[in-house]
């Protein structure tokens, strides 16, 4: 196994001190990754409030299990994985209370319709959050994090084909939403 050596030597030192229970080191690590991780958790959460809960639980876990961090990947990846797992757990816990909208029947959007606009982060976040919870998770895991459908199936306790079909639906939904956004933008510009 290839052992990852952090470029910034101070990170290794920070980890060591954080494991030793030094509060200042823990705070520095938190400050270093909290912003990025909140953005990650927002993608999986339905609300900002839930995203903050996910972040809080994630960092509690990070500091609880930091001593088990072997250094075989960048710390950021390790923390991100914890955030994702925590978010999925939150989702599982809250599955019963999710008010799942009736699945929309999406129109077939031709792949030839090009989406060539740039969208704001908030707009994209809004679109992802608008997906049904299961689709939201599958889309995030496949399109953004880069997991395979097999891995996603294991993580979400669904079959690989289910993951594929849910991803396909999510993708179609998002594509349609993006085109709608593009059209609105175009209408605004043209007057």
């Amino acid at each position: 196994m290839k052992i990852f050596k952090p470029k910034d030597p101070s990170e290794a030192d920070l980890i060591k001190r954080a494991v030793a229970g030094k509060r200042d080191a823990q705070h520095l690590l938190y400050q270093r990754y909290a912003g990025k991780m909140l953005a990650v958790s927002k993608r999986y959460a339905r609300t900002d409030f839930e995203a903050e809960d996910i972040l809080q639980d994630s960092f509690i876990k990070v500091f609880r299990y930091l001593q088990d961090f072997k250094g075989d990947c960048p710390l950021e990846f390790w923390v991100k994985r914890i955030v994702i797992n925590t978010a999925l757990k939150h989702q599982r816990t809250n599955r019963h209370l999710m008010v799942t909208d009736q699945e929309e029947e999406w129109d077939d959007v031709s792949e030839h319709d090009s989406i060539d606009s740039q969208f704001a982060y908030e707009e994209l976040l809004e679109l992802v959050r608008g997906l049904p919870p299961r689709y939201q998770a599958v889309f995030n895991l496949y399109a953004i994090e880069g997991f395979s459908h097999k891995e996603i199936g294991e993580m979400l306790d669904i079959t690989e084909s289910t993951s594929k079909s849910q991803y396909s639906r999510a993708r179609a939904s998002l594509r349609q939403a993006l085109l709608r956004l593009k059209q609105q933008y175009h209408e605004k510009v043209t007057g």
Partner: peptide, 8 residues
Amino acid sequence: VEDIFRNG
């Protein structure tokens, strides 16, 4: 779609 969201 993936590129748009990944970049975003």
